[in-house]
């Protein structure tokens, strides 16, 4: 197949950027979207031009590195997949494809399609962990977890932090990401001691990073390669509201320095 690409090119963080047109010829429908870009890049290199910069690593939808706006849709037209899992058979011969980086104040462009998603890491650093002495792991069955909670927690934990939720959101909100992280820990016994402090500090960091607020458009859950539900946002709001209004006392884990 032969395609016309319109790709956002921007040499550096402060440089002016713009859409540039490229012809992608002899593309196999079995290629992944990133393989198609690899081919385009090889030809650019042969011509002595700068290849298109984009993030990628695992290329199997588990690392969260890849991500671009493809024809106005985060991660492209197929549902529940990351850009690396998108195949060229999702397009038709002769199509024009507009490719842009994630757009958000909190995601500054580094180069071309590569954006800095450090804001998401800082939200995790604000509370997306449990404070527990490490060491050898204890027996898996020593803390019973109800099946529904384990399943719901696992669904939230599927978040790979790609940032598609922010990219797709008309408000540029990181609520699905933050909600997923708060839910996946808050649903488990191990997450209880810091549950309410976590909600307050992760939400505060989310605001500091300059993400927008949630108005429940639902675009995030449609864009999410892991199909995480906006139910995690309700859960985040519930924990945040309880934390802000009733200031629940933290239950101490016992032992150690008490």
């Amino acid at each position: 197949m032969n395609l016309t690409l319109q790709v956002w090119r921007q040499p550096g963080p402060t440089a002016e950027g713009g859409l540039k047109e490229y012809k992608a010829t002899d593309v196999s429908p079995d290629m992944s979207f990133l393989e198609m870009l690899d081919v385009v890049n090889e030809r650019l290199i042969e011509k002595g031009e700068m290849p298109i910069a984009f993030d990628h690593d695992c290329r199997e939808g588990i690392c969260g590195s890849c991500g671009m706006m493809i024809n106005g849709v985060a991660h492209g037209p197929s549902r529940g997949t990351a850009t690396c899992q998108l195949h060229m058979r999702s397009f038709r011969d002769g199509d024009t494809i507009v490719i842009e980086p994630w757009r958000a104040r909190a995601f500054p462009v580094i180069k071309d399609l590569v954006v800095n998603r450090g804001a998401l890491d800082r939200i995790i650093a604000a509370g997306g962990y449990i404070t527990a002495p490490t060491g050898s792991a204890q027996d898996a069955n020593s803390i019973p977890v109800p099946k529904q909670d384990a399943d719901a927690s696992m669904d939230a934990a599927a978040c790979i932090g790609c940032g598609a939720c922010v990219a797709a959101c008309p408000n540029g909100s990181a609520s699905l990401f933050t909600g997923a992280k708060i839910s996946h820990l808050g649903l488990l016994p191990q997450g209880q001691p810091e549950r309410y402090r976590r909600a307050l500090s992760m939400v505060a960091q989310m605001d500091i990073e300059g993400f927008g607020g949630c108005t429940l458009f639902g675009e995030c859950q449609a864009a999410c390669p892991k199909e995480i539900s906006i139910d995690v946002i309700s859960r985040m709001n519930r924990d945040f509201l309880r934390a802000a209004v009733t200031k629940p006392a933290e239950r101490s884990g016992g032992g150690g320095d008490g």
Binding site: M69, R103, A168, G172, S173, G210, G212, G213, G218, E219
Partner: peptide, 28 residues
């Protein structure tokens, strides 16, 4: 919240296609 939303995306997309949002949500 509208001001915060405006600030959250200073450079807009050339193309963004809403996938699932309702007319109601987009006219709030």
């Amino acid at each position: 919240l509208t001001q915060i939303k405006r600030a959250a995306r200073p450079v807009d997309y050339t193309k963004r296609e809403p996938q699932v949002s309702t007319l109601a949500s987009r006219t709030m």
